[in-house]
Amino acid sequence: MSNIAGKAYAMNVITPIRWYKVWINRLIFKIALSKPSTLKGLVTLSLIHYARWVIIPRDGFPHLDSSQPKENLNYAYMLFFSNFNGSWDQYVDSFTFAIPAGLDLFWKWNVRYPKSVPLSPFHKYIRHNQIDTSHYYNAYPMAASNDVKSAKKLKQALINFNAESASKTSEEFLADYNRLLNYLQHDFGEMRATPIVSLAAHAVKERYLKSHAAH
């Protein structure tokens, strides 16, 4: 089991919501999506790869086979699914400090939601309802979300520069090159291994590597 793969952490939180209040949450999601400014805090928190909230109605859980027992659920559920960079604490803390009102708006109608401030009841609520990740595949474990954004920007800028600079004089080339560096000055961060997010998760990985090296 690990919630961590390289620089990314996968968080799944599933919280009950009274089925007859689901429409309120749906409405709030709709408004938030139609007014991007409500999400600017979330977007500015650059440690987030993405975050998604989904309502699963009482009868909406998959029933894959007739052999799977039917469930009779009392609640609808809100699934919160997020991948982010850094530790659980860093993420949950950033959320509460940066966008407490937004969190309260999204979770307000969920059963026993304590509000995001003060912090420890909120911590307990999230941890209690978190489903730990059993399998987590990350194609670019060394890349944080910011690294991906920078790499994409850098690649495109280089392709363009290459196409445009071929026939230029050396003075023009130099001026263009400096402009290119200026344009990319926030995208040159080195990409190396992750700082250790959790000593426990790190030890799990080390043990795994050791036992596989031995075989």
């Binding site: 960079n85 803390d93 910011n146 926030h186």
Partner: peptide, 24 residues
């Protein structure tokens, strides 16, 4: 210590994702 000193030491001195500077 973990939330204050260690965080600064690990995330802001020896790493820079919060500053969008990768591992610089």
């Amino acid at each position: 210590i973990k939330r204050q000193f260690e965080f600064v030491q690990q995330q802001w001195i020896n790493y820079a994702n919060d500053f969008k500077e990768g591992n610089d």
